[in-house]
């Protein structure tokens, strides 16, 4: 594993998007994500995708920051496309209710409906990715927990997220050190070992990691109790920000986009699907 991996490469640029409060960004992210997850209309989905790519530009996100993620996403989407074709080549026909075959491979007929369904699905999956990236790469981790609390998540659950972000690098470093310490005690960890041995060996690392974490949980929760955590029903946040006019604007625009998506489905398509075949 790569010990040098960074959590998020949060970039400190000062753009319109960075200046939005964490709560705003979280709410907008959720509204827009919901919109693309709801809609099965490729026009809406592509529109949303173009919008989010423009936003990415505005946030000065560099390609190098997201290259690796894109590779993973593409691998995932292509595998999904292939498997889902072989599992159910008629899925498109079932959804759109017509059948326009244009070719045949190994006895399976290729239909335009299936192509359209799979292309739509491809973009539907893909279009949430830039939204997520913008949110992750422009939100200061410190602001994240207070934003969750700001949108109504219980503050204790929100603080659990803050603790995860705080201690992830520590856990990662511990894991690496334990891995090395075990090798120094004589543990063979090469990939040549048999399946069962490799399984046993990974336990030899996971067990100390967990037990040292249990000790640490005790110390941290004592430290938090001593400083009054969870004594009242609410708490304030050092990092929370007041909503500015820009925040309100962003929220309104996102809400309108969601309503628009729903309206397109209800009034124009009369279903979640856009059906060009009838």
């Amino acid at each position: 594993m790569n010990a040098k991996l960074k959590l998020f490469s949060y970039n400190m640029a000062d753009t319109f998007i960075h200046r939005l409060s964490g709560v705003t960004k979280l709410v907008c992210f959720l509204l827009l994500t919901f919109a693309v997850m709801f809609s099965y209309d490729i026009r809406v989905i592509l529109g949303m995708m173009v919008l989010s790519i423009i936003l990415m530009r505005m946030a000065q996100i560099r390609f190098s920051q997201i290259r690796l993620m894109l590779v993973y996403v593409l691998i995932f989407l292509l595998t999904n496309a292939i498997i889902s074709f072989f599992f159910s080549p008629e899925q498109g026909v079932k959804i759109y209710g017509t059948k326009h075959a244009f070719a045949e491979v190994w006895g399976i007929s290729l239909t335009w409906e299936q192509v359209f369904y799979q292309v739509t699905k491809f973009f539907k999956y893909a279009s949430v990715v830039p939204l997520g990236m913008i949110f992750l790469l422009t939100t200061n981790p410190s602001e994240f927990a207070s934003s969750l609390n700001g949108v109504g998540v219980n503050y204790k659950a929100a603080y659990a997220v803050a603790l995860t972000l705080r201690y992830f690098p520590d856990v990662q470093r511990d894991y690496h050190d334990i891995y090395l310490a075990q090798q120094a005690r004589g543990l063979e960890l090469s990939s040549k070992a048999k399946f069962f041995d490799r399984f046993k060996n990974s336990l030899l690392i996971v067990i100390p990691l967990i037990f040292s974490t249990l000790d640490r949980i005790e110390v941290i929760s004592n430290a938090m109790d001593l400083r009054g955590f969870s004594k009242s029903k609410t708490r304030t946040w050092y990092t929370s920000r007041k909503l500015s006019r820009q925040d309100v604007l962003a929220l309104v625009v996102s809400a309108v986009l969601l309503l628009f998506t729903v309206a397109v489905s209800v009034f124009i398509n009369r279903s979640r699907f856009y059906n060009p075949f009838i």
């Binding site: 511990d174 050190d177 334990i178 310490a181 075990q182 030899l204 690392i205 067990i207 100390p208 037990f211 040292s212 000790d215 640490r216």
Partner: peptide, 9 residues
């Protein structure tokens, strides 16, 4: 090692 917890398994 400095931190005993990292060695104990």
């Amino acid at each position: 090692m400095q931190n005993p917890n990292q060695m104990i398994s």
